[in-house]
Design a protein around this nucleic acid. Structure first.
Length: 153
DNA sequence: GCATTTGTGGCTT
DNA sequence: AAGCCACAAATGC
């Protein structure tokens, strides 16, 4: 089954992702390959729910290439909506070095599905593979309306 | 307190 | 097998 590239117009920008017919293989934020196809699959459905502020089970996605990315994914998925964590915290939880976390997150083929944007550095914002603007926008979006209970700053 | 160095572990090529 | 990195804690000043 060959993978098809779709796009989804989110309120925060254009999201492009590769869908192979049964699972999501990869996601690009604004910097993906060109496509003229609009999404019609669980991914677009999830994206729609996500940007509606709803909690929704993730669409099926291809397994990670490496074991640690799978572990990392699980750890990231435990971060609730609107919350953030630091590389150090994750490194502590996974018993690994913070630097490795950065590399692993940077190598994550599925940003947004895997909430890697919820990981910020201890001192500042950290980084993001497909542009830091996305991270800021996503965090601002998630924290809007939920800033009453969690004082992140 | 701020600037730099070092410890560190997995990922990409 | 070697370099790279989206950090953090520890020093040096």
């Amino acid at each position: 089954m060959q993978d098809e590239v779709f796009y989804y117009e989110s309120p925060l920008g254009l999201i492009t992702y590769a869908w192979d017919g049964k699972s999501c293989r990869e996601i690009w934020l604004q910097c993906g390959p060109e496509t003229g196809l609009c999404g019609d699959d669980p991914v677009s459905d999830w994206l729609k729910a996500y940007f509606s502020g709803e909690d929704c089970p993730l669409p099926p996605m291809a397994e990670s290439r490496t074991t640690f990315q799978a572990v990392m994914r699980a750890a990231l998925l435990e971060i609730p909506y609107g919350e953030t964590s630091t590389y150090g915290e994750l490194a502590k939880r996974l018993h690994t070095a913070p630097r490795a976390m950065g590399q692993a997150l940077g190598a994550n083929p599925l940003p947004l599905l895997i909430p890697c944007h919820r990981i910020v550095a201890a001192n500042g914002l950290g980084g993001f593979a497909c542009g830091l603007e996305w991270k800021r926008r996503l965090l601002a979006f998630e924290q809007s309306g939920r800033s009453e209970s969690g004082g992140l700053f």
